[in-house]
Structure formats: structure tokens, C-alpha cells
Design a protein around this nucleic acid. Structure first.
Lengths: 128, 128
DNA sequence: ACAAAGGACTTTGCGGTGCAAAGCAAAAAA
DNA sequence: TTTTTTGCTTTGCACCGCAAAGTCCTTTGT
């Protein structure tokens, strides 16, 4: 990875390339006003400790904002995607797509047929 | 990730989810008779040490076979995708695709337009 | 009023791993 | 013969994901 850092794989930002953070970011992608800690935990199927740690990591990278307030008398943490986080994550997703297309090409070439994501990965792309 | 292990993200096999191994497997996907250590190293842009370690990991997972022979008087390591490795990696790629589609849906929903991978990630998918 | 239970997180400990640098053995070059 | 190059493997360390434990407050019995 170090010798030619201009391939699509080198753009796979480590910060997002972790399954737990991938799912966190995907959840946040669908929101406008952020999500509470507990909702996010349940939606992602993560343990409290895990989510806490990953959120800290994402906050350090300025991908999210973490607002602490109260709901009634209980503490309530709200997680919100930052604009930079949204932009960076979209860039990461595009890099992922490039990786996928590259692999699809390889398989197609080996089988001597034209590259076709649909026939490689099934009919789901028909929706696009 | 531990609470509901039935989401597409939980299928992102760690063994393949490492950028270096992702590129290694993608390279192998295009081959029939395997690749030499040095060719693979150059194609992937990895250092010797790095490639060696990742190959050992992939071999332990039975994703590849490593054949050692001689070319003339020099040692020559040939790396070959196993059938299981090919199958498992294809499954991983499908999981990746599901993640991508999920994210695309989230973005589309937030913007109030129908899900469309093409418009999210650019025109490259038009080839499919 | 007091104790026990529950909620909302955070911190700790550790096993695993990616990476670069160093090491090694054989062959080719000088 | 000494040096350099080739073709790898091993070592060391710093980082990191994860589960378990801990903290602090609130609510619910009794």
C-alpha cells in the first residue's frame, strides 16, 4: 500500500473502514437532526462501551458532533453528522464502490465476458 | 455488532476487510494459475514484509494456497486463490455491496428522492 | 426513608494486528 | 572474494476493537 499510494484502495480511510463505524456512519447518513446514544446503539446492534469508544474516535476525527443535554432529569447524548463528516464519508463510499467495480472487472475478465456489476452481484442493482 | 448479528455489516469478514488483503484478493481474483510473490507485491504496491504477513494470514484462513518452487536456482513463491477463498471473497464482496446500497438508500431517503446508486456515486455504474 | 434496580454512559484490560525495519540465505555482480 | 541484489521471513511496537467492569444518577419498591 505504501509504494503506489494512488490506487483506489489507499483512499479507504481507516476511520470509516471499521465495520462498527461503517454502520454508525450509515445510520447517521439518514438523519438530519442527529440520533440519541441509545437509539444509535440499538439501531447498530452495538454494546454501550463499543459505541462510546467509536463515537469518541469519530468525534476526534471531526466526523460527528456530540451534544450532551438532558431529557427530563436523565442525561441524553445526541450524535450528529458534521458537514465534513458527511463529505468525507461520501468520499469513502465512492472509494469503496471503486474497489467493488475493480473486483467485478477482474472476475468478468477472467470469465471472458464484459464487466457487469449486475450479473456479478445479483439483481439488486436493477433498482438503481 | 454483537446484539443483532443478522445485519449486512456483520457479514464483513475481517479476514478480507483489510485494505491490503482486499487488494491482494482482488488481484488474485483475475488470475487462473496464481501470481508470483514479487509480481503480487508490485501489483499491490506492498512492501515485502507486509505481503508476507498478509499472505500467511490468508493461507491460515485457507483462502489461498502458497506453492514454493524454484525458477532456475532462485526460490519462487506462487500464490493461488483456493476455491473456498474465491467463494468466500465473493460473498464478502456481496456484503460490501449491500452496505453500499444501504448507505445509498439512506442518502436518497434524506433527500426525499428514490434510491439510486447511479446518481449517488456517479456515472460509472452506467457500464453495468 | 432506605435499599435495590435500572438507565446512560465511560473507563479499563487485553488479545490481536498492521506496519516498518531488521534479518537471513542464496545468487549475481564487481 | 567482497559487495550488492533478490526473495523472502521475523521481530517489535504501537495502535485498536472488544467485552467487562465501573461510575453516577434516577426510579422503583417496601
Amino acid at each position: 500500500m505504501s509504494r503506489n499510494p494512488d490506487n483506489p484502495y489507499s483512499k479507504l480511510e481507516r476511520i470509516f473502514h471499521e465495520p462498527a463505524r461503517l454502520i454508525i456512519m450509515s445510520q447517521l447518513l439518514g438523519t438530519v437532526d442527529g440520533v440519541t446514544f441509545t437509539d444509535l446503539r440499538d439501531a447498530c446492534g452495538l454494546t454501550d462501551g463499543n459505541l462510546s469508544r467509536h463515537l469518541a474516535t469519530l468525534e476526534r476525527a471531526k466526523a460527528i458532533r456530540i451534544d450532551k443535554s438532558f431529557a427530563g432529569h436523565r442525561p441524553q447524548t445526541t450524535v450528529c453528522l458534521s458537514q465534513q463528516g458527511r463529505d468525507d464519508f461520501m468520499a469513502y463510499l465512492q472509494a469503496l464502490e471503486a474497489v467493488l467495480l475493480d473486483a467485478a472487472d477482474k472476475v468478468a475478465a477472467r470469465q471472458g465476458r464484459p464487466a457487469s456489476l449486475r450479473s456479478l452481484f445479483g439483481p439488486r442493482l436493477a433498482r438503481a
